[in-house]
């Protein structure tokens, strides 16, 4: 019993460790002073104001949203299709599909990005028009869609589909009226994860960005190498809050289910 209690106390210390850097950034972002000091010199939204009027950050923010949306849409469709295929395939094939689909997550991100960098140059496209960047983000997000949809499909009874067909629904009607509503929570949480992963991605964006474009994490990284004002904290906190808002809204609207991996 005492061992249990000790472990519980230790766990809370580790939970604090997990939350600490995020909380610290949020607290720092409300600092009224010009420098990162702890405890903060009074509370203010001044650095948020500064950030919102910083054209460079705002442009980076828009770029991040754009790429995350595109990547999520592509991965969402492709990943869901693959999960549907694997769920109906023989175990050996399903297992192979699973490993292949998770590979982009398990391979080192930097190496994958380097591979794409070389590859798109070899194809003569280079990094222009953000094609390589988008490809990198699709690879980053694809496994998350696949995991979440696959989890949702675990309890899926295929006779529901057969029942729909027997009642006169065509394959497309069956998909949109029966299959999709039933796996909706998996698709939505997969897309949510995917969006966040893409939005926060660093190495891939760093290696594959076209000259002159930058995503928000890249801009933040650049800024942090030279500056230590609380504006960076405001930018960071802004992304944390945005993530939280999106998650809460999704949870309220659809009933989010977080998949295990």
């Amino acid at each position: 019993m005492t061992a249990q209690r000790l472990n519980s106390a230790l766990s809370w210390v580790i939970y604090a460790f997990l939350l600490a850097p995020i909380l610290v950034v949020i607290i720092a972002s409300f600092n009224a002073g010009a420098f990162l000091t702890f405890p903060p010199q009074g509370l203010s939204f001044r650095w948020y104001w500064t950030f919102l009027h910083n054209a460079v950050f705002m442009r980076a923010f828009a770029t991040s949203i754009e790429i995350a949306t595109l990547a999520t849409v592509i991965s969402g469709v492709v990943g869901t299709m693959a999960a549907l295929f694997a769920a109906q395939a023989r175990p050996a094939i399903a297992n192979g599909v699973r490993i292949a689909m998770l590979a982009p997550m398990l391979l080192p991100e930097v190496l994958t990005a380097i591979g794409l960098l070389f590859y798109f140059y070899a194809l003569g496209i280079g990094l222009h028009h953000g094609v390589a960047l988008l490809a990198g983000h699709v690879l980053l997000t694809l496994p998350f869609i696949y995991i979440n949809v696959s989890t949702a499909l675990k309890g899926f009874d295929w006779s529901w589909q057969l029942a729909a067909r027997s009642l006169g629904a065509g394959p497309w009607t069956t998909f949109f009226r029966i299959t999709l509503p039933l796996i909706k929570s998996g698709v939505i949480s997969g897309c949510l994860f995917s969006f966040i992963v893409s939005f926060d991605a660093f190495s891939t964006s760093f290696l594959l960005k076209d000259i002159g474009t930058a995503t928000l994490p890249l801009q933040l990284f650049d800024y942090l190498r030279l500056n230590f004002t609380p504006e960076a904290a405001a930018v960071s906190s802004f992304t944390v809050f945005a993530t939280l808002v999106v998650m809460v809204v999704t949870e309220r609207a659809f009933g989010l289910k977080i998949a295990r991996f």
Binding site: P21, L36, D200, P217, F221, S236, T239
Partner: peptide
């Protein structure tokens, strides 16, 4: 759910 840049930044503050 928090970007790697933000998390690393948090640690630099600490």
């Amino acid at each position: 759910l928090v970007g790697i840049v933000v998390r690393s930044y948090g640690w630099t503050i600490i």
